[in-house]
Design a binder for these strands. Sequence first.
DNA 1: AAGTCGTGGGC
DNA 2: TGCCCAAGACT
Length: 375
Amino acid sequence: MSLAGAAPRRKQSPVITAEHDTSDALLRARPAALLAWYDRHRRTLPWRAPPGATADPYAVWLSEIMLQQTTVRAVGPYFDKFMARWPTVTALGEASLDDVLKMWAGLGYYSRARNLHACAVAVTRQHGGRFPDTEEGLRALPGVGPYTAAAIAAIAFSRRTMPVDGNIERVVSRLYAVEDELPKAKPRIKALAETLLGPSRAGDSAQALMDLGATICTPKKPACALCPLMQGCTARLRGDAESFPRKAPKKTGTLRRGAAFVVIRGDQVLVRSRPAKGLLGGMTEVPNSDWLPDQDEAAAKAQAPALKGVSRWHRKAGVVSHVFTHFPLELAVYVAHAAAGTRAPTGMRWTQISTLSDEALPNLMRKVIAHGLGD
DNA sequence: AAGTCGTGGGC
DNA sequence: TGCCCAAGACT
C-alpha cells in the first residue's frame, strides 16, 4: 500500500502540505487511483461480472433493486433464489405478482417487489425483453429512480454517469468536507462525485466508490490509512471524517399497539391478504386490529374477527415487538381453536401451517404466528 | 418536500 | 438497550 506520504512539503504555500495536496495533478489522478484500488480490492459479489467482462443487465437491475436500503448480506440468498427461478427478465415478467411477493417475503420494503414485477412486465412487453440502455430510458421504469438508473447505465451499459448512493455520498462528503446537510447537499455531492469519473470504466468507478464506502470509508471508524483517496481528503485532514455526511437527526416514531389473532383449525391457520398498497402492501397476515398509539388492550381485542364454532380467545403471555422504519409496534397475540369445518370469514382463508414458509408472509407475521403457536 | 416504507446486524 | 445504519423510490 503506497501511502505517498514521502512527497516533500511545498515551500511556496505553507498551508498546503503534501498530505493535503489538492493540486490539479492530484485531482486528475484520482479516477485512475480509484480504479487501480478497485482492481486489487474489489469485492466478489454474485451479481458482478468477472473483471473485464460485461455484466448482465438483468442481474444488475435485480441486484440494484434488492440492494436499495438493504445490506449485501441480506440480499445474497434472495438474489440467488430469484436468479435460479427466473433466469431472465422475460421469465420474471411472465410470473405472477403473488409468486414474486412470496419469493420476496422477508426482504422488506415490499413496494420494491411490486415495482420489480411491474418493471419486468414492462421490459418484457414494451421493450422486447431488453432493458433500455440509457439512463433516461431506465429512469422511466417502475422502481427505478435516479440512483438505480445511473447504476444500471454505468455498470451494465458503460454509460459515463455516476450513481450516487449512501456509500458514495459518504465518501465524497468526506473528501470535500461538505458542510451542507443531506438531502440538501445531494446536487453538490453528485457534481463532486462526477469528478471521480475517468474517460472510461464508469461502472467500475462507481462500484469502486461503493466498495470503498463499504470496506474503508465506513460510517464509523473509517480506515483512512488504507484509502486510495486519502491524499487531499479534507475530512481526514481535519480529523473528523466520522462527522460526515452531515444530516439532520431523525425522530423516532411513537410506539403503536394492537392485537393479532391466530385462529387454528387442525393443521391450518386463518389468514388474509393486506391491501395492495401501503404498509406491507399485498402481503399475507393473520387477522389483526388497528395499530394505534396508546390503544388499550381491550379496544384492540374487541377487533377480533367474528367466528362461529370457535373457542374462547387465549391471550399468549408477552407481546410481539417489531420495529418499522417510522414506528415501533407491539402486538398482543390471541389464540383460538376452530372446529373442523369452520368457515373462513369473507376475505379470509385457511392455510397449511406446514407450508407457511411458502406464503407471502412478512417477518412480523412470522413472529406473530410463532408466538401464537409457541408455549 | 417531508413522510412512508422492513428488516437484521453492529456497537 | 436503544440507536444507527444499509447500492432509495414514491407520493
